[in-house]
Design a protein around this nucleic acid. Structure first.
Lengths: 260, 260
DNA sequence: ACAACTGTTTTCAAGGTGCAAACGATTATG
DNA sequence: CATAATCGTTTGCACCTTGAAAACAGTTGT
């Protein structure tokens, strides 16, 4: 019985901290809850949850608003801090805005973190449909055009790690759920330097994305335009959109000394 | 060089979680750092910091960006979630916007949490000067007009708790640093239902604030206008501003079924 | 080559941590 | 109004986690 030679990812961890993280997750999932409810949700004793919540409250990460614990306003501060920190070099926001105006649809910018896609910019054109994504929101990489554009320029080893960790959950019947198919798709993305999403995360929505690369060829993110199938399935229109997306990607690549 | 900023708390707390919180604080204070740097800043062993960071990373609260640990983008998501959660009932944002337009200065809305003031809305009029505050930012209550407006309608016992916890640190030579003087000031605030800040947090900036009260008379926050002393020290102008602030407070009181 | 740093892993004992159960406090319910 | 049912909080205790210290492994710089 030999231990798998996993990378130093699963070394020692602090169980108490893990529990507190689970409790924070529970508070979010439940939109606030009492001690007992949290205890049931994470499967530990009431007493333990109580001391953990007391500690988190002392650190101002949770609030007790008449009997119910909730995540505190401190997270707004932290979120704002991170935004400042990474800078999102106005260039990205401006270009995404222009892209939304020119296309009339939703334009977005995504980066990868912890094997998931994080939206860092979003703008809406005049014909834009509503989507659920927002700045800071996280989606799987394998079922979005943005994510596939990023994965296509990520070292194969890393892609495998990501798939190991998060799997390939199906969001619609169009979602790619097999590793082989995913790698085939990534090959196709590289051929055109464009990724497409045809209802793979949400039926009725289609998406065109282009990677944003570093001076060294490292991928730092991706830009996209999202619209309803009714408009996007027109080849000519899609082609126009693709050109706009490519253009935006280029502008960001040129100007972005460093994003993130 | 730097002394360990560890907090002590009453009641039972989870020491390991406390350490992780200190580490998160350190990462923010240092704008990202390595294991050794964090260990020195917090005053614990390298080994301990390493296991804690590993745990926080596994929970995606921290990223290791080529050798340096930083707070992760997840905080943007959490911040956005909290914003959604409390809703800030567009009314507040709209009214703050109007107040900024009418006054030409900076208009803000603040609530109290953990004994500190948290800005939840900010808008800039055409003559607005730059200030350091932003949505989510936290300031002491005793040295802002907003904070004093809130404290004036907070039970005396609670005010004492808050002062016990945070003290009355001086930000400028105008800051109120004695408990008696603070209570005198709060009495004056109640007399006019208006609070003033004459360079108590930042020399050269003045501020007029009005409390926002519940149907039950409980304070839920405060609204303010901030401007440079050069304009605000004119009595007539200040009077006009005060009327606008009062008006905004009233509108929010009437419309806000519940804020927060 | 060596020193001087990093980050990571290991050993080991001290004491923290979580469970279970008891305790108050509050609300339902007959 | 008494009793039951839940809630959050506290306590005692046994086990096992956790943090210090030191060894180890990589990298950088001189």
């Amino acid at each position: 019985m030999s231990k798998p030679p996993r990378r130093s990812c699963d070394g020692r961890t602090v169980k108490a901290v893990q529990l507190s993280c689970d409790i924070l997750d529970a508070l979010r999932a439940l939109d606030g809850a009492g001690v007992t409810e949290v205890a049931n949700h994470v499967g530990v004793s009431k007493g333990a949850v109580h001391t953990h919540l007391a500690t988190l409250k002392a650190n101002e990460l949770v609030v007790n608003h008449d009997g119910e614990y909730q995540l505190s306003l401190r997270f707004i501060d932290l979120g704002e801090y991170i935004r400042d920190q990474i800078g999102i070099s106005n260039i990205v926001e401006e270009e995404i805005k222009k892209l939304a105006e020119n296309s009339g649809e939703i334009a977005q910018f995504m980066v990868e973190e912890h094997g998931r896609g994080v939206y860092l910019a979003k703008a809406e054109g005049e014909n834009a449909v509503q989507t659920l994504s927002y700045v800071g929101n996280r989606n799987p990489l394998h079922c979005t055009a943005l994510g596939k554009a990023i994965l296509a320029y990520t070292p194969e080893e890393r892609v495998n790690e990501i798939v190991d960790r998060h799997g390939l959950p199906a969001k619609t019947s169009n979602t790619i759920t097999e590793r082989d198919k995913l790698f085939d798709e990534l090959e196709r993305v590289r051929e055109r330097a464009l990724a497409f999403d045809r209802g793979e995360i949400f039926k009725g929505l289609q998406c065109v994305a282009a990677p944003v690369l570093d001076h060294d060829g490292e991928v730092i993110g991706a830009v996209s335009v999202t619209g309803p199938r009714s408009r996007m399935q027109d080849d000519h229109h899609e082609q126009e959109i693709a050109e706009m997306v490519r253009h935006t990607s280029n502008v960001i690549e040129v100007n972005a000394a460093q994003v993130q």
